[in-house]
């Protein structure tokens, strides 16, 4: 059995807002094994970025985190104080953000910002940190790496800056990398390069990766396992194969129907769309969170909590009152329609 790097049970994040308590993340549980890539997929505002920030303990002050279990490499993160937590950040776990254009400090050279990440956690000289920075800049495909160290962020393109951010996350060889929509702000051609790079580096350094995205195409290419998130909850989890080949939850089915497939989708034909909007997460939602947008919802869905249940295979779970057989049938009829 492979070693679990990250183990989470019933993670909740509540955010105080003027109108009440926004339940951004509700009882999500998952594990990430060593070297594994887990992708958390969902639309904007479903709580996926908040999940990542809560693991780093970088949530805004108005947000409260709670969990029954939260361990990184066997270490309980729940009762670490801010000082102990900052010892882990950038060392055992590192994060790559969505906005490469604004995620680097404009006042310092990239060399300075890269070295700093290592000097904070390792007892090394500036020269050693610089060598490590050059090594990693070359790894992330930046040419003339040593001369780049003296450049400032505004002299680099968005794609290059994201490569710098990736190199920065690798400075201390973290056990876990959190990538929050790392390619969303980039051109499509650059997106592919960055993803390829992330997948390659993950193998090379044997880090675990949590990839947060709303782009299912990305998931299919790099993830080992997928968690589909909707309105603060995981609605379906499984291996990438299970979720893509046999999506069970009506939301996952709807998401996959939104992707055009070259050669299969007729030109000019309507792409799928999920009607309605994400429910307001302030206060408690009775019943299934997706009920208001679900084509199969009936009264049974709107009372009582819906638990995750196993699909045909045990490692594939989804959160719906419908049986696996009915879900499979829905998928077929939905695809036909």
């Amino acid at each position: 059995m492979t070693k679990q790097i990250l183990e989470i049970e019933n993670l909740c994040v509540d955010i105080d807002v003027p109108s009440g308590v926004l339940r951004a993340v509700q009882n999500i549980s998952f594990t990430v094994a060593k070297g594994e890539t887990l992708s958390i997929v969902g639309e904007s505002g479903c709580g996926k970025s908040i999940t990542a920030l809560s693991l780093m303990n970088l949530l805004p002050k108005s947000a409260k985190r709670s969990a029954d279990k939260l361990t990184l490499d066997g270490r309980d993160l729940r009762d670490l104080n801010e000082r102990e937590m900052s010892d882990l950040r950038g060392d055992a776990m590192a994060m790559i953000f969505q906005e490469p254009m604004t995620s680097l400090n404009p006042a310092y050279t990239i060399g300075n910002q890269l070295e700093e990440a290592m000097l904070r956690h390792r007892n090394v000289s500036t020269a050693e940190a610089r060598d490590r920075a050059v090594f990693l800049l070359e790894k992330v495909g930046i040419t003339a790496a040593r001369s780049r160290l003296g450049q400032y962020p505004h002299q680099l393109s968005g794609g290059l800056r994201q490569r710098v951010m990736i190199a920065m996350s690798l400075m201390c060889e973290p056990a876990l990398i959190l990538a929050d929509e790392p390619t969303t702000a980039l051109d499509v051609t650059i997106q592919a390069q960055i993803l390829h790079l992330l997948a390659e580096l993950r193998h090379e350094f044997d880090s675990s990766l949590i990839l947060i995205t709303h782009d299912l195409g990305i998931v299919a290419r790099v993830a080992d396992r997928v968690a589909v998130m909707y309105a603060g909850e995981f609605v379906e989890t499984g291996t990438t194969e299970q979720v893509f080949n046999a999506p069970s939850h009506p939301y996952t089915q709807g998401l996959l129907r939104c992707i055009p497939i070259p050669g299969k989708t007729k030109r000019g034909a309507h792409l799928g769309a999920i009607p309605g909007i994400v429910p307001n997460l302030v206060g408690r939602i009775e019943g299934c969170h997706f009920a208001s947008r679900c084509p199969y919802a009936d009264d049974a869905c709107r009372t009582g909590d819906v638990a995750l249940r196993p699909s045909f295979e045990k490692s594939h779970e989804y959160r719906c009152v419908l049986s696996p057989e009915i879900c499979a049938a829905n998928l077929k009829s939905g695809a036909a329609a």
């Binding site: 780093m56 970088l58 900052s86 010892d87 882990l88 950040r89 950038g90 060392d91 590192a94 994060m95 953000f97 906005e99 604004t102 995620s103 680097l104 400090n105 404009p106 006042a107 310092y108 700093e116 990440a117 904070r120 956690h121 951010m165 920065m168």
Partner: peptide, 22 residues
Amino acid sequence: ASDYIRTARAKGLRPVRVLFKH
């Protein structure tokens, strides 16, 4: 509130350093 301050914190830098350097 800027992104690069979040980056600095994500690197594990101490609050004083985040404040005065970044």
